[in-house]
Design a protein around this nucleic acid. Structure first.
Lengths: 159, 159
DNA sequence: CTGTATCCTTAAAGATACTG
DNA sequence: CAGTATCTTTAAGGATACAG
């Protein structure tokens, strides 16, 4: 059964993020809002989501705080909130990854700044802007991890 | 019915990316591999995925090229490929977003470089490293978009 | 330990029709 | 146009048992 456990209890920020946008549609809807698509019907057309699914998703995203509903009650407009915009670096990074590995050199979408310049590839860098070698990074339990989590990770990460 | 249409035909790199990692588990599995968890059983424990689901996901990720299987046939080790590592900026950006909006100041996971310095927040910047105002960006059909896609977007984005 | 093979459940997603 | 309300389907996810 698709009784997806809520990931929220995994004590991982990624899991919590995925609880909100970890389905196939949410990110596409957010992409649409990022692009500037604002209407229910247009999102439905652009993405291909079923209307009831779209209703459910929009309600969830509004409830979670990523999306704000404006306009009249009869003709709402949807837009990203600060929280929603704050996710865009992640979304753009995924899109760029798709560009690199699937679009074979010709990205169907380009993100540009207000001067029409293409936004560079999202990277992990040092505080000074130097590129980091991804293979040399370490992901560790942080201050928010309880002792139990740390012990758990010690068990799980054997080298 | 969860007859998720394949998103791949949406002519969007994001959709293609989501086709591979757009489910709840894949990103968590990739996170584990990024952390250094290498064994089937450990991934299962760490994430809570059912074993058959994990099998399916790992096979899919290996097939898609994000994960490589090493070690003996009886006791495989799983690791990120170049393609998998290349997705880490997106994954890290999502994790950081979760930190900011859900972990209330105490991120349970911290990404560090080889010197133990915390990796800064992933951002969209100009080529020169200057922060970009997300609200001033534009997402446009690029060279990879067929004329039809462009026309479609014109229809869908009304301002 | 790493799977594979069933079986079962359910909830997610689509289709459709209808309302304000 | 923006939903809501059903109805139906189906495949994803879990549990379990078994195999190499």
């Amino acid at each position: 059964m698709p009784v997806r456990k809520s990931l929220a209890d995994l004590n991982c920020s990624l899991a919590k993020a995925l609880d909100v946008v970890g389905d196939g549609w949410s990110m596409l809807i957010l992409r649409d809002l990022f692009i500037g698509v604002q209407r229910f019907q247009d999102i439905a057309n652009s993405t291909g989501v079923a209307r009831n699914t779209l209703t459910e998703r929009l309600n969830r995203l509004v409830g979670a705080g990523l999306v704000v509903r404006t306009g009249t009650e009869h003709r709402p407009l949807y837009a990203l909130s600060d929280m929603g915009y704050d996710l865009m670096p992640a979304l753009v990074a995924m899109m760029q990854w798709g560009d690199r590995w699937y679009a074979d050199g010709k990205p169907p979408m380009v993100i540009e700044d207000h001067k029409g310049r293409e936004v560079p590839v999202v990277k992990l860098t040092t505080a000074k802007g130097k590129d980091l070698d991804l293979r040399k990074l370490a992901v560790k339990p942080g201050p928010g991890a309880e002792a139990m989590t740390k012990a758990w990770l010690d068990t799980v990460i054997r080298r």
